[in-house]
Amino acid sequence: MPEMTEILNALVVFTNFVLIPGLAYGSQLALGALGVTLVYGILRFSNFAHGDVMAFGTMVTILVTWWLQSLGVSFGPLPTALLALPLGIAGTVLLCLVTDKFVYRYYRAKKSPPVTLVMASLGVMFVVNGLVRFIIGTDDQRFFDGERFIMKARDFKTLTGLNEGLAIKSSQGITVVIAVILVALLFWFLQKTRAGKSMRAYSDNEDLSLLSGIDPDKVVRITWIIAAALTTIAGVLYGLDKSFKPFTYFQLLLPIFAAAIVGGIGQPIGAIVGGYVIAFSEVLITYPYKKVVTYLVPESWAPEGLLQLLGTEYKFAVSFMILVIVLLVRPTGIFKGKVL
């Protein structure tokens, strides 16, 4: 039987390298997937421009952050970007409403099949993709300021006397806290407010909701505003935690979609669960359990190999394997998403 400290060490290793990063990454994916799912639920198409809209929102926030920093404004221990966030959201809302007016509304009015809208979003994706690079360039941008850590690995070791360290970055803390608040707000909005209820009604049965006097334009507008806000926040949190680069944000589109689909597209709760499923499957399946096991078993049993199911080079593929397996068992995702 391993000693208590051994078990604690194993636990700390696992928390440090799997639990905390997975939680932060999962929250970022979940917020992104919420945007995709809302647009899907109301407007009934998969928005391929999502990743680049995310990049756009983050870009605006970064530009405002730089401006604030040049004025000497700061947010104490928190990153200045959080102060800039409202303006970033405003910019993204504007972008979404403009694209809706000039692109999506036409097809909606024509009652085009969803794939037409998907293709239109592909067009928007290309344009925004180029636009962002024109404005901010292709470079990596770091815009995190303020206190970097809630807990440092080294401090944890001296504090507890354990072999293993535990680190919690402020950006990870902020991500999880904001994600929880946003999700709570969103559910309150959808369940309790008049506008939220009309959105749900519209999503459930468009014709019926129109009969009951719901203004479709208003529902669509609100959807875009909420989706834009969620997207921008997701992008900014991701950028604070890692860094901002247009190419990376374009690439984020795929895991975000995977998250939305795994959970069941059109279902907000599904998007959240999907985000964590994708994030954790990436880490859990490619994590070598050697260290954890070594702490838990007697010394003579210590494994020689890495105990890794798949190499990290397959990380990206893992999320899609999980996706395919989930779809085989539950063809419309974990929470039974919409079927067209």
Partner: peptide, 28 residues
């Protein structure tokens, strides 16, 4: 055989996922 039972967007994302897996294998 695996994915054609899925509808529209689900089929789409399944094919996307499998193509990513194929390329990952070729790459690694």
């Amino acid at each position: 055989k695996v994915a054609l039972g899925l509808r529209s967007d689900y089929l789409a994302i399944a094919t996307l996922g499998i193509s990513e897996i194929v390329v990952a294998i070729l790459k690694n």
